[in-house]
Simulated scan of single mutants.
Amino acid sequence: MSFSYQGGHILLYHGVFSKIPSGLESRLHNVFPDEFKRQIKWLSREFEIVSMDEFTTAKDNRGLATITFDDAYADLFSYAIPWLVGEGIPSTVFINSNLVCGDIFWRDKVRFVLTEQLEEDFLTFFAQEQWTKKIRPERFYKDSKQPGLNSHLVDQALNVFFAERHLDQELLTLTKVIAKPSDLINDPLIHYGNHSASHYVLSSLKPDQQCEEIISCQNWLNKGKYRCTSSFALPFGGTQDADENTHALINEAGCSAILMSRQAVNRNQQKDPITELPIFERYMAPSTVDELIVLSRQLDQTL
């Protein structure tokens, strides 16, 4: 007996690397290309795959699915997206405008620290700073992105640490893992969306910093030649990763929906109580198609 899906599913991918870039081996969410292809073929058999905006405006998204990518890793544009276009399948890439324009993703710096086992060195280097008391070396990845710790501050500290350790070449390598504007594919099946300028935890920032993150990315998208979704993908996507200022600024930027990443699917429409913007749930695709089948059914049954 086939499984009958009752919810609308938004899948979230990050990397689709055939080989994980050096320095990012720790904690990068990656689905290898062959498995990615198998997952999408399975998804096509089980759901009607639609664009992001078709999904968010559907009166009933039961049986619908849409494919999203966060952070615009360069590998997407050499394998995953060209293959999707060839298959006639729509997808959406959520962009961090500062990163595609050349800044290094601060979470990739964190991954490098973890890969090279430099957590203790980093915390020792900043031992006189009060904010480091919030980061435990054994939970460096999670603690460094907590809402109570300003992400911009952590990012700047990572830059200082890399410079002190003379890791210039390693930083240069990290500049190559995120796509550049020239890499982005302009095709009717591909849409791009706002994921903030630098992928900081927005609720950790002051209101003016949040404004810069949300509005500047939207302005960058508006000036481009690309087809854009009106949905905003919240960086990290947890309940505590946004506050009242975040939601108000998303609304001010002209976005029509907020995407969370809370490992859930969609049936009953949620709305932000302040702005009335609809809220949709996403879940990260696991490593294999078998795991995806199990996860999708478990999440669907929890509705």
Rank of each mutant, 00 (worst) to 15 (best):
D71K: 01
L114E: 07
V50T: 14
W42N: 08
F3Y: 15
E54V: 03
I250L: 02
L174P: 05
W106H: 06
C255I: 04
N194V: 03
E119H: 03
K109Y: 05
L299R: 05
N61Y: 09
R262C: 12
F105P: 01
L299K: 08
I40T: 02
K206Y: 15
P286M: 03
V201D: 00
E212H: 12
V201H: 00
G23K: 00
G23C: 07
T246S: 12
S22N: 13
S196E: 09
L303G: 02
F77W: 12
G15F: 02
V113S: 00
F47N: 07
N186H: 12
L259H: 10
D243I: 12
G237S: 10
L303E: 05
V85M: 09
R38M: 11
A157N: 06
V110S: 01
P188S: 14
Q263Y: 06
K41Q: 14
A58R: 08
G237L: 08
L202T: 04
L234W: 02
A74K: 15
E170H: 11
I215E: 03
Q263C: 03
P137N: 04
E48S: 14
T57M: 15
D187F: 13
K134R: 10
S256A: 11
N245Y: 07
K223E: 10
I20W: 02
V294W: 05
S198K: 14
A257G: 07
K223A: 13
S198I: 06
N159M: 08
P137E: 05
H14R: 02
K180I: 12
L202N: 05
L249I: 14
Q39V: 11
S216R: 10
N194E: 02
P33L: 03
G7I: 01
L174H: 11
S18F: 07
T68N: 14
N222L: 10
K271Q: 08
P188C: 12
G224I: 00
G224N: 12
F112L: 08
N61G: 03
R62I: 09
E244H: 13
F69Y: 14
I185K: 09
T68C: 15
L153Q: 12
Q270S: 06
K176E: 15
H166W: 10
K180H: 15
L303W: 05
K133H: 07
N268F: 07
S203R: 04
S261P: 11
C255H: 06
Q146M: 07
E170L: 08
L118H: 05
Q39I: 08
F32V: 11
G8V: 02
R62C: 15
L43Q: 07
K142N: 08
L167D: 02
M1P: 06
N222G: 10
H152E: 10
M52W: 03
L184T: 01
S261N: 15
F69N: 06
A179V: 07
G86W: 05
I215H: 00
V100S: 01
F236W: 05
H195Q: 10
K19W: 07
G238V: 13
S182I: 10
L24R: 01
M260Q: 06
F125M: 01
A80H: 09
R111E: 04
E252S: 10
V160L: 14
V265F: 00
C211W: 13
D272Q: 00
W106C: 00
I10F: 06
E119F: 00
G237C: 09
T229L: 08
